[in-house]
Amino acid sequence: MAHKRTLKVGLDSAAPFPMHSDYNAEVFEGFEVDLMKAITAILDFELEYEVSLWSNILEKLFKGELDLICSAVTVTDSRRHILEFSNPYLHFRLCAVINHGDNLSGIADFKNKTIGIREATEAEKYVHVNFPANNMVHAETNRELYRKLQAGKIDMLIDDSPIAGGFLQKNPKLKVGMYLPNTDSQYAIAMKKGDVQLKAQFDQALSTLKENGLYQTIYKKWFADVQF
């Protein structure tokens, strides 16, 4: 009997829940976990997860040490130059998260605010481009970032809306102050540049899941009451 192909899948060690939880926790779960199970069931692949810091993970894929990354990877033009992407599996926006007692009525309210961001993320780029004069505080993990906001070390943080949603379910003292204009984004599965056969297989599997309703079932399970 032929062995199933095993895919090495890169995961962000700072788990971006509800996309996926901490791989080393008792329960490894999330939208992307269910999605990958469903895709690999169709394609008859095995999965081997490898956990790494976000700043290393894209580099590992680029070097060919991983087959793919399914860990809240935003599709961008610059990443397209060096990586292959599947069709997107989730649409979202960037949002500003603030403490419950605060309010944001618009971008003008960002003036003089200290903004928290995660290193090597699209949110970080967005803040550098749009608010270069602001005081910025960088964090290596989501947890550290949200903790800084609760501790009053920053005035707000910028994050992907699905991940913010996951944190806000656990942090009732925080809220989304606003969704940021012109930040419509997509998550997709990243693969090594030139791995077009694998991309085609994943795109086909994603289409099948949308046609047979399984994608919608997984989506509802994780995002039933989240708005983004």
Rank of each mutant, 00 (worst) to 15 (best):
M19W: 01
V75D: 05
M156F: 03
Y179K: 10
F167E: 11
Y215A: 05
N99A: 09
V75E: 10
K63T: 04
I154Q: 03
K148L: 15
F92G: 02
H91P: 02
A14V: 06
Y215I: 14
L209V: 09
G165K: 02
E65V: 02
Y187M: 15
H3Y: 11
I57H: 00
A164Y: 06
D22Y: 03
M136T: 04
K4G: 06
D184N: 11
L94S: 07
P132I: 14
V51K: 01
G106F: 10
R79W: 07
Y179I: 10
G30T: 10
W222L: 06
A72S: 10
N182K: 15
N87E: 15
A41Q: 07
F167S: 09
N130T: 12
V73W: 00
I115L: 07
T76M: 07
I42T: 02
G116K: 10
I98S: 15
D203N: 14
V75P: 00
F92W: 08
Q150M: 13
D159C: 05
G106R: 13
D225Q: 07
H3K: 11
F223Q: 02
M178T: 14
K175Q: 15
N112D: 14
S55L: 08
L209A: 09
I158F: 03
I154V: 15
T208D: 06
K148M: 14
L174Q: 14
L214Q: 15
A120E: 13
D159N: 07
A15P: 00
I218C: 05
L149V: 09
I189K: 00
L174I: 14
A108P: 03
S86M: 14
M19T: 04
F45K: 12
D44N: 13
W222G: 02
D160Y: 03
